[in-house]
Amino acid sequence: MTAELRVASPSAAQRILTTIALVLAILGGLGTVAIMAMINLDVIGRGAFSTPLPATAEIVSASIVSIVFLQLPYATASGRAVRSDMVIGRIMARSPRAALLMDAMNHLVGTIMLAVLLRYIWPEIESAIADRETVGLYGVFTLPRWPFVLAVLAGCVMTCVVYAMLTVNLFRAAFQTERHP
């Protein structure tokens, strides 16, 4: 059951959140293309010219976490986050209300987990900026660390908001659903 099926007609706020989540997913996709290009340039540089692209491993490792968090809000909003649809589908066939409540609880736990994660990400941004932390190889090629951590924060905030919105929608739908005999 996808998020689109959970809400008969999404509100303006839900459409805006989904659009923002889509923009973040597109940025994550562009980041994926960028690191693929970087890895290919590194391989070609090593093989053809015996000169690797500096700091490739460090930049790719910093980018991957950012990319995952940039794509997480849209995956969640579109019902593609990891969960067991088979169990919920079987329960839905017998008791739509029970399935909706189970799904709502799943999303509530997701909301809480993302909120806890946010508590730990925020100090990382402060530290990255205050300490002028970098990724890369000192003396060869470095980038500031804060944009990577900021991307994680943006994705985490948006995913938390999307989870909260879906939680409310699912609880609302559960209590508006009639019981089957």
Rank of each mutant, 00 (worst) to 15 (best):
C156E: 04
V87H: 02
R46I: 00
I91T: 11
T51F: 08
S50Q: 10
S50F: 14
S84D: 13
S66Y: 00
A99C: 04
F141I: 10
M36P: 01
F175R: 05
N40E: 15
S95R: 01
A3P: 09
T19G: 13
L108V: 04
N106R: 10
P54F: 03
L53F: 15
I91E: 00
L117I: 05
M1V: 14
G31A: 04
A3T: 02
N106K: 00
M1L: 13
G136A: 05
A37P: 08
R83A: 15
L143T: 11
A34K: 12
L101M: 07
L30V: 06
V116Y: 05
L153H: 05
I59W: 03
N106L: 06
T19W: 15
R172I: 10
D85V: 06
V116R: 04
A173H: 11
L53P: 01
V116L: 05
T142P: 00
L5P: 03
E178Q: 06
T159I: 07
E124W: 04
L166Q: 08
V7H: 09
Q14Y: 08
L108G: 09
S61A: 15
A174E: 04
I125D: 02
I26Q: 04
A99R: 03
L170V: 04
G89P: 00
C156A: 00
A12L: 14
E178P: 08
I129L: 13
R94S: 10
A99Q: 01
V152M: 15
A151K: 09
L170Y: 06
M105D: 05
L22K: 03
Y120C: 00
H180Y: 01
W122E: 11
P144E: 00
V149C: 11
M113V: 03
Y120V: 00
S11P: 03
A3G: 07
T167S: 15
M36Q: 07
